[in-house]
């Protein structure tokens, strides 16, 4: 195995160590002085002021979002794969079955930023590339309830189904507007109060204490 033995500072006698010491201190001072007299070496970025010029890498994971096609429709079919892959149970896909249909469609896509660890698995597994991470990192709020997001503006079928309907007015009938998620939310613990009735069966009840 190739090894290198690290160098050790010389022991030397007192006088030579003393002069070495003075020299080393002066060398150190030269390094810092060079930075003082070269303002171009400053690396500080003044964040809120440089918002316009601030460019983050495109792969930065800061917020989960939906991709929409040119008509403003998404391709989500409420298949729940992202929900199953999420290690923190941060995603809740609430689906609905329209009257007279057997196929379920997306009602509300709830994403809890407060418990998300940005592992990107939901994006990786999405079969229709609906989900993506964007770089909008300014998501701090004063109330934890506001960290529960609804990612879609409407409830309705995927764009593939919608676009089969030729008439624009007919299409509009198929979808219902959805605003930001305002359902009841537990501030701590799991599961979300309120949602649990619809999505979670009794099996999700927390285990009885010992």
């Amino acid at each position: 195995m190739k090894t290198v033995i690290v160098a050790r500072p010389g022991d030397g006698n007192f006088v030579s160590r003393f002069f070495y010491g003075v020299k080393s201190l002066l060398t150190g001072m030269r390094v810092t002085f060079r930075y003082l007299v070269h303002p171009s070496t400053v690396v500080t970025q003044q964040y809120p002021e440089n918002r316009k010029t601030l460019k983050l890498a495109e792969r930065v994971r800061a917020q989960l979002s939906f991709t929409f096609d040119e008509n403003g429709f998404h391709k989500c079919t409420a298949c729940h794969i992202c929900e199953q892959q999420c290690p923190n149970a941060s995603i809740h896909v609430m689906d609905r079955k329209p009257a007279g249909s057997t196929k379920s469609e997306l009602d509300t896509f709830i994403w809890r930023l407060d418990s998300c660890t940005f592992c990107n698995l939901c994006v990786m597994v999405c079969p229709f590339q609906v989900l993506k991470m964007n770089s909008n990192f300014e998501s701090s709020v004063y109330d934890q309830k506001l960290l529960v997001y609804n990612l879609t503006p409407y409830a309705g079928p995927a764009s593939s189904v919608l676009m089969k309907v030729a008439d624009v007015e007919e299409r509009k009938k198929l979808i219902d507007a959805r605003g930001p998620y305002d359902g009841p939310t537990a501030l701590s613990g799991f599961p979300l109060a309120g949602i649990s009735k619809q999505v979670f069966p009794e099996t999700t009840q927390i285990g009885a204490p010992q």
């Binding site: 810092t32 002085f33 930075y35 003082l36 303002p39 400053v42 690396v43 003044q46």
Partner: peptide, 13 residues
Amino acid sequence: KVAAHFQCRLGPM
């Protein structure tokens, strides 16, 4: 300010 410029920073701005 001096410390900041020794350390490649801007200091209070």
